[in-house]
Measured scan of single mutants.
Amino acid sequence: MQRVNMIMAESPGLITICLLGYLLSAECTVFLDHENANKILNRPKRYNSGKLEEFVQGNLERECMEEKCSFEEAREVFENTERTTEFWKQYVDGDQCESNPCLNGGSCKDDINSYECWCPFGFEGKNCELDVTCNIKNGRCEQFCKNSADNKVVCSCTEGYRLAENQKSCEPAVPFPCGRVSVSQTSKLTRAETVFPDVDYVNSTEAETILDNITQSTQSFNDFTRVVGGEDAKPGQFPWQVVLNGKVDAFCGGSIVNEKWIVTAAHCVETGVKITVVAGEHNIEETEHTEQKRNVIRIIPHHNYNAAINKYNHDIALLELDEPLVLNSYVTPICIADKEYTNIFLKFGSGYVSGWGRVFHKGRSALVLQYLRVPLVDRATCLRSTKFTIYNNMFCAGFHEGGRDSCQGDSGGPHVTEVEGTSFLTGIISWGEECAMKGKYGIYTKVSRYVNWIKEKTKLT
């Protein structure tokens, strides 16, 4: 034993070699072989497995989906700052455009905790909710729209109204504003409101030439003092309507412009014939205590009207009353817009006519005020429907199939267009061939041609 100890002390290297040989010859039971080890760690190889990531292109799944990435790591994937920024906006807080917040056709661009709407022409605001041009839906104005110097929408209202708090709607500024039905039992019968379409306001006024200088022999019209197929109006439903009495009662109609003036057809009036105007009328054979009678003290036909040349060209006249009318729910003026808007309103496509005229061709006159909704007829169809001249200051309205029309005794009465609950004068009943005849239409004086003249002559002093 002493000898062994001496050998170990003198030859430590020998001992180490012996131990190493023993270990190498022993069977290893701690580690699995290569094949079995792979069965336990069965993990798919990654895209760049075996390579240094710093030297390969980034992978979106590896960089940002398996674990949260930084902007720089995302930049490695896209290799483009702009594309990385677009991805980053949604990656950080989701897609803010998912709810489609942009209105009126706006395009949404996502941002971090926010979004941006790219608005089409005519709109602005956070969600493109603000109209900035009158060309689109009248700028959301209830009545009139004008573009300011910086191309912003400025709404306005006709006389007797003021802008509401929203700067879009119009509200009454006087007790009985024009064009409004205020009798409670008839307010439910107000005709369907007309909503502004998209309009090209630059070209809204037709490029028409008034044929002022045409000389033409007097034409022989049949029954051209021209509501057939209409309905009984309720008291106060058309408070701007008046009836004219002269040699015979209810020979023509008219509309209240203001307390002192009536507008009617020029062919209705004769110099030297006494005319009485009755406002607030409903049943011409009954006294309903809503009527107001006034005498006409002055007749002003349009300066281009000449019955000797043509009885229905420039067929418009103004009547001055001896005493002002007292405005109330049964006696209310009709609204008159400017030339541009009167023309736009007419193009809405349908209007209402009213009167006490004959209820059928050569038949009896109506006792109760009649009204009828009539569609506008395109000019080409209008011209083809008659052998008589249709001037540019006239328009056609009615039904091709016949059966409904204005008729004798309705002449001078109103053709009105309702705009968001307020009625505007767009025409004056003038003439036609018979009444409600198939293929024939009622012919009306186009008020847009005469609004400046009306307003100039009827100013209240």
Rank of each mutant, 00 (worst) to 15 (best):
R3Q: 08
V4R: 13
M6I: 05
M6V: 11
I7W: 13
A9Q: 12
S11V: 14
P12W: 07
G13S: 13
I15L: 09
C18T: 07
C18G: 05
L19W: 07
L19C: 07
A26T: 12
A26P: 02
E27P: 02
C28G: 12
L32Y: 15
A37P: 15
N38C: 03
R43N: 14
L52C: 04
L52Q: 15
E53D: 07
V56E: 07
G58Q: 07
E67F: 03
E67P: 04
K68R: 15
C69T: 03
E73H: 14
F78E: 15
F78P: 15
F78D: 10
R83F: 07
E86G: 15
F87T: 15
W88V: 15
K89H: 11
Q90H: 14
Y91S: 15
V92E: 15
D93F: 04
G94Q: 10
G94M: 08
Q96T: 04
N104Q: 03
N113I: 04
Y115E: 02
E116Y: 06
C117A: 01
C117G: 00
W118H: 15
P120N: 08
F123E: 01
G125F: 00
G125I: 00
D131L: 15
T133V: 05
K137I: 04
C145D: 00
K146M: 13
S148M: 07
K152Y: 08
V153G: 05
V153C: 03
V153A: 09
V154H: 07
C155P: 00
C155V: 01
E159C: 03
R162F: 07
C170H: 00
P172Y: 04
A173E: 08
P175N: 09
R180N: 02
V181S: 10
V183W: 09
V183H: 06
Q185W: 12
S187C: 05
L189P: 09
R191K: 13
F196L: 12
D198M: 12
D200T: 06
D200Q: 08
A207W: 11
E208K: 10
T209P: 12
I210V: 12
I210R: 10
I210C: 08
D212I: 10
N213W: 05
N213Q: 10
N213F: 06
T215P: 12
Q216V: 13
Q219T: 10
Q219W: 09
S220W: 06
F221L: 12
F221C: 06
D223L: 11
F224A: 14
F224V: 11
T225W: 11
T225G: 13
R226Q: 13
V227H: 06
V227Y: 10
V227R: 11
V228F: 09
G229M: 11
E231S: 08
D232L: 09
A233S: 08
F238D: 01
P239M: 01
P239E: 00
V243C: 05
L244Y: 03
N245Q: 09
G246F: 04
G254A: 04
S255M: 03
I256D: 00
V257G: 01
N258E: 02
N258Y: 01
K260F: 08
K260W: 06
V263W: 02
T264S: 05
T264D: 01
A265M: 02
A266D: 02
T271R: 12
G272V: 09
I275Q: 03
T276F: 05
A279F: 01
E281S: 10
E281M: 12
E288H: 07
E288I: 05
E288Q: 07
T290Y: 10
K293R: 14
N295I: 06
V296C: 03
V296F: 01
I297V: 09
R298F: 03
R298K: 12
H303I: 05
N306M: 06
A307F: 09
I309D: 09
N310W: 04
N310Y: 05
K311W: 04
D315M: 00
A317K: 00
A317N: 00
A317Y: 01
L319E: 01
L327S: 03
I334R: 01
C335T: 01
I336Q: 01
D338V: 03
K339P: 15
K339T: 09
K339W: 07
E340P: 08
Y341A: 07
I344T: 10
I344H: 11
F345I: 07
F345E: 01
K347H: 11
G349W: 05
G355E: 04
G355K: 13
W356Y: 14
G357K: 14
G357P: 08
R358A: 11
V359D: 13
G363V: 07
A366N: 14
V368T: 14
L369K: 15
Y371G: 14
V374G: 01
V374R: 04
A380Y: 14
I390E: 05
M394E: 02
A397Q: 01
H400N: 10
D405Y: 14
S406G: 14
C407A: 04
Q408G: 13
Q408R: 13
D410H: 14
S411N: 13
G412K: 03
G412F: 07
G412S: 07
P414V: 10
H415L: 03
H415N: 00
H415Y: 10
V416L: 06
V416N: 03
E418S: 11
T422A: 05
T422L: 05
F424N: 00
F424S: 01
T426L: 02
I428M: 06
E433N: 14
E434I: 09
E434G: 07
M437G: 13
M437D: 12
K438H: 14
K438W: 11
K438Y: 06
I443M: 10
T445P: 00
V447D: 00
V451H: 04
I454E: 00
K457E: 09
K457V: 10
K459V: 14
